[in-house]
C-alpha cells in the first residue's frame, strides 16, 4: 500500500513539475506548482515527517504560490509566445539536474552514510510536531524571540516604504519645485 502511494505521489509530482516548465500560461504553471508541492508534502507524510509536510503545504502551497499569483496578476503577464527557447537556461537546468541525479546515485551506491539504520538512530528535531514545539520554546527560546523582532522590523519597513503620505511625498515635493 505504501509502495503504491509512493509511486502515485512521485508520478504526480514529476508530471506536475514537468508541466510547470512546458506550459505557456503562467497561471496554469502556478497552479501546477501547487500540485507539485502537494505531491512533495505527501511524500513527506509517507516518510513520517508530518510537521514538515504541514509546513510544506502551509508555506509553499499557501503563501509562496499566492505571492506568485499576485505578481502574475499585478504585472498582467500574457501567455508566453512560442519563440526560440532559452538555450542558456536549458543547458544550466540540465546541468544542475544531472548533478543532482549523479549525487543521488553516488549516495545510493555508497549507502553507508544514509542507511535507514543511521537515519532512525538520529531522529531529527523537526520530525514530530511535539518535539519540535518543545525544542522551540526551551532550547531555541531566544532565537524565536529574536525572530519576533525581525518580523516587527519587516512590518515597520513595509509600512514605511509602502505608505503614501501626503505631507512627505506629495505636497512638500511640489512646494519645493
Amino acid at each position: 500500500m505504501v509502495d503504491f502511494l509512493f509511486y502515485l505521489f512521485s508520478l504526480t509530482t514529476l508530471l506536475a513539475a514537468g508541466t510547470v516548465i512546458l506550459t505557456r500560461n503562467p497561471i496554469n504553471a502556478a497552479m501546477l506548482l501547487i500540485l507539485t508541492f502537494v505531491g512533495t508534502g505527501a511524500l513527506f507524510v509517507l516518510l513520517g515527517a508530518y510537521f514538515l509536510a504541514a509546513v510544506q503545504l502551509a508555506v509553499y502551497a499557501g503563501a509562496v504560490i499566492v505571492l506568485f499569483l499576485f505578481i502574475v496578476m499585478l504585472l498582467d503577464v500574457e501567455t508566453a509566445r512560442s519563440g526560440k527557447p532559452n538555450y542558456p537556461g536549458l543547458v544550466a537546468g540540465i546541468g544542475v539536474g544531472a548533478l543532482l541525479v549523479a549525487g543521488a546515485l553516488v549516495l545510493y551506491k555508497r549507502g553507508d552514510y544514509f542507511t535507514l539504520a543511521t537515519l532512525r538512530e538520529s531522529v531529527p528535531v523537526g520530525a514530530s510536531t511535539r518535539s519540535f514545539g518543545v525544542e522551540l520554546f526551551t532550547t531555541y527560546m531566544l532565537p524565536v524571540q529574536l525572530a519576533g523582532v525581525l518580523l516587527l522590523i519587516a512590518m515597520l519597513g513595509v509600512i514605511h516604504i509602502g505608505k503614501r503620505t501626503r505631507d512627505s511625498s506629495g505636497e512638500e515635493a511640489s512646494h519645493r519645485q
Binding site: 531566544l142 525572530a147 525581525l150 519587516a154 519597513g157 514605511h160
Partner: peptide, 22 residues
C-alpha cells in the same frame, strides 16, 4: 542564533537603506 541575529540586522538594513523613499 548567529543566523537569526544576522538576518534581523540585514532585514533592518534593507529598510534603512531605502528609508528615503522619495
Amino acid at each position: 542564533m548567529l543566523f537569526v541575529a544576522l538576518e534581523t540586522v540585514t532585514v533592518g538594513f534593507y529598510v534603512l537603506v531605502s528609508y528615503n523613499r522619495n
